[in-house]
Design a protein around this nucleic acid. Sequence first.
DNA 1: ACTAGCCCCTGGGAGC
DNA 2: TGCTCCCAGGGGCTAG
Length: 291
Amino acid sequence: MPELPEVETMVRDLKKKVLQRTFLNVWTDAPKLIKKPKRFADFEKGIKRKRILEIYRRAKNIIFELSGGCSLLVHPKMTGHFLIGNWSLTDNSWHAEKRGPMKEKVNSYIHMMFWLDKGPMLALSDLRKFAKVELWRTEELKESEYFKSLGPEPLEKEFSFKIFKDIITMTRGKIKPVLMNPKVIAGIGNIYSDEILWRARLHPLRDTRSIKEKELKEIYNNIKKVLVSAIKLRGESISDFRDPQGKKGFFDTERRVYQREGEKCRRCGSIIKRLKVGGRSAHFCPHCQSN
DNA sequence: ACTAGCCCCTGGGAGC
DNA sequence: TGCTCCCAGGGGCTAG
């Protein structure tokens, strides 16, 4: 499940491989993934012959800044990830493939394929087809209500303890869903919120208004520590996340609570429990993370 | 102002 | 072995 570290891993790899290259063509068998513009023909027309000038991450979005004042935004949601491959489809086989299922899928979950000039192609794999693909005017995207609504980036220098403290104390609710809310802080999802709270020794259901300064400091420090460490390890692959080369991440070695229900806490030996909050499962140690 | 629930989707696990 | 049922989950949305 791509969260900030997995999306950051994809962006860093993509920058090495596809920067300055030009979109020649695009294919999909799941046009519903494309939310903007509404018609695939318009999307196709809009992306063709555009060169990739920059690639960056905002929250869990991957944004390709293109020539001609366009930006391609991809939110991978649950199972989306980019793959870079040397599938040698010539222009002729592309036309053949257009009429039927792709024969050269390296992965049967590829639902979008981008042909680039020179070298390997770019594919979007998405088992559950939840991903969001949008083509924007760059200016409009940067000024969009959506961008403005996103919370701060937790790894930016500007994300000080004071800012963190202010937004958490301002946001009422249970700490786990608050941490996961992209409008509060960008990029933290179910896995990393569980891991952060275990390290900070806070119960996922703690009311934000009851959290003391010292505890806030623990959460703040562990947000940075966990995310930085996960990026170094190239993300998690408990889910089906793979990097653009199709390789797994190594965060599993650092996993302490997520999907460890019934197993022993690595700190105190108590049995890890699971509960539901905000429609998501929260994993925690009932001894270390008392409410 | 909250929160619970629904929806999109599909593989995998459980139960029979 | 194979069928059916149910669940997970990001995030936007609605309904209570």
